[in-house]
Amino acid sequence: MFRDVTFGQYYPSDSFVHKMDARVKLLLNLVYLVGIFFVVSFVGFAWITLFLLVAILASRVPVRNVLKSVKGVLFLLFFTVILNIFFTKGDNLLVKWWIIEIYAEGLIFAGKMFLRLSYLVIGSSILTLTTTPVDLTHALESLLKPLTWIKVPVHDLALIMSLALSLIPSLINETDRIIRAQKARGADFDTGGLIKRAKAFVPILIPLLVSSFRRAEELAFAMNSRCYEGATHRTCMRVMKLSWRDFLGTSVVLVFFVAVFIVYGTQTTWGTAEQLGWLYF
């Protein structure tokens, strides 16, 4: 049942993007996420498309894998588009039938919303496709380190994340085992309505919970045996080093988004849609 579940969507490769420092990738992803909200025209989205294509090419991840990430938010996308089409009012009425009115502005707005949301997901998935969860954890720990000054237990949080990541596969196996054991004793998980099926999962959750606690206790013993006592005096084996790739990658992304900001950021603040003309559309 859970055989196919692989956690994270890391796509192993040796590409330019894969070899970049996880911290840099994380920060650039933030720049991208913010930057994309400045883009207001289809021309701008065309440029973003080009940018994404270059990024995907440099990461050597098949386009199909990248697009797969959008599948997860398809439902959300669909709703956003529908809502925007039907509830945006404008000047150019295209269709009027019963209480439904569709305006050209609605279609345009929905289209832009669709692009913006899916590009958000696609951009972030390039990060997760090229960076292992472990690297991401390290990057987060390293980037959030300044917060230890205000007593945020950054190291502990990172360790919790890392432990959770390493426990997920064994918990999945455990769930699988419990399901099989219960099926062998005649439990039925596949028929009946939603409520009946949900109820059938209770006998799975309880043993899973119990075994998780047992696991946690054993893990605590194992960690204590290996002299764990929190972040104090702790050293780290992994060294994160910046390479020419990080500087090149950062330069490209920054130049691109500075350009985006100059074109849209300043004009949307100072001008109106009419003044912007084709840039706005």
Binding site: L165, A222, R226, C227, T235
Partner: peptide, 29 residues
């Protein structure tokens, strides 16, 4: 070394798991 191999792994990468002990002891990188 304990009984259940799955319950003593701290991270999911082999070398990082082995490094956990010396890291806690404050051994230089």
């Amino acid at each position: 070394v304990f009984q259940n191999p799955d319950n003593q792994m701290v991270t999911s990468i082999v070398e990082e798991d082995i490094a956990f002990g010396p890291e806690n002891l404050g051994v230089p990188q």
